[in-house]
Design a protein around this nucleic acid. Structure first.
Lengths: 129, 129
DNA sequence: CGGCATCCTCGCAGATACTG
DNA sequence: CAGTATCTGCGAGGATGCCG
């Protein structure tokens, strides 16, 4: 073990917290749920309808994780049948500008990504011969 | 207008390109590789050293994907032993401000996330009784 | 309605070994 | 040095069924 001393693995990259936060947004559904809730407090079912293809399990799981990490507040209204509403916390609001910015970047630049991909695949296909 | 209906999975969320881009950054290693290359053009091994815990396989795979999507440029210098250098493309440079901003957010707010998590776990543990 | 429990599977990712 | 190739596991995530 220990061949570490000489080469620093760049602490700023391997840094603890950052990796953890990356894991949070890496969950594939988290960012989509955040976007949904960005439109305001809403019910469980409403979130599900807004995110095409998400299963109940993943929606619940994602919401739990977001709640645990302090991004989402869950409110149960004592009614029958039960009404459960979710909303972003102030902490999440501080993150949302970055999330929104990311989506704006996508809208502006995604065509270039597709283009690059086609070019890459094209070249790669030729090498196949 | 076409106030369409039953299926309204919120086009802005289910929208095509955005999901694809989310998948890109969801790969867990991609963002870390982008950060590494943000320090400038560097060799394969250098990137690996900067990202603690990444395997050769995943590093190669991540770099290939980034190259395919137009975020990274790969240059092979005709030397023995082979020298391969990677660098961010102009397209990636337009994305980096968002990536950096995200890391800054983490530095500023991660303690709150940890705090929320502890609070959540604490309450949850009590309910266990 | 808004979950949780269970089962199952498919593919990501790690470990290891080999190569130009 | 900068990769490929192969095997394997394990866990994310889908499907289904039940409950307050």
């Amino acid at each position: 073990m220990a061949n570490e001393a000489v080469f620093k693995p760049d602490l700023s990259i391997s840094a603890c917290g950052y990796r953890r936060v990356l894991e949070i947004i890496s969950s594939k559904w988290t960012v989509l749920v955040l976007h949904a809730l960005d439109d305001g407090r809403m019910r469980y079912g409403e979130i599900g309808k807004r995110i095409e293809g998400i299963s109940q399990k993943m929606l619940t799981q994602t919401l739990r994780q977001l709640e645990r990490d302090g991004f989402v507040k869950r409110s149960v209204l004592p009614s029958v049948p039960p009404t459960v509403e979710y909303e972003l916390t102030p902490l999440a609001e501080t993150l949302m500008p970055h999330i929104r910015g990311f989506r704006q970047w996508t809208n502006a630049h995604y065509p270039l990504v597709e283009q690059a991909r086609r070019a890459y695949d094209h070249i790669n296909a030729q090498e196949q011969d």
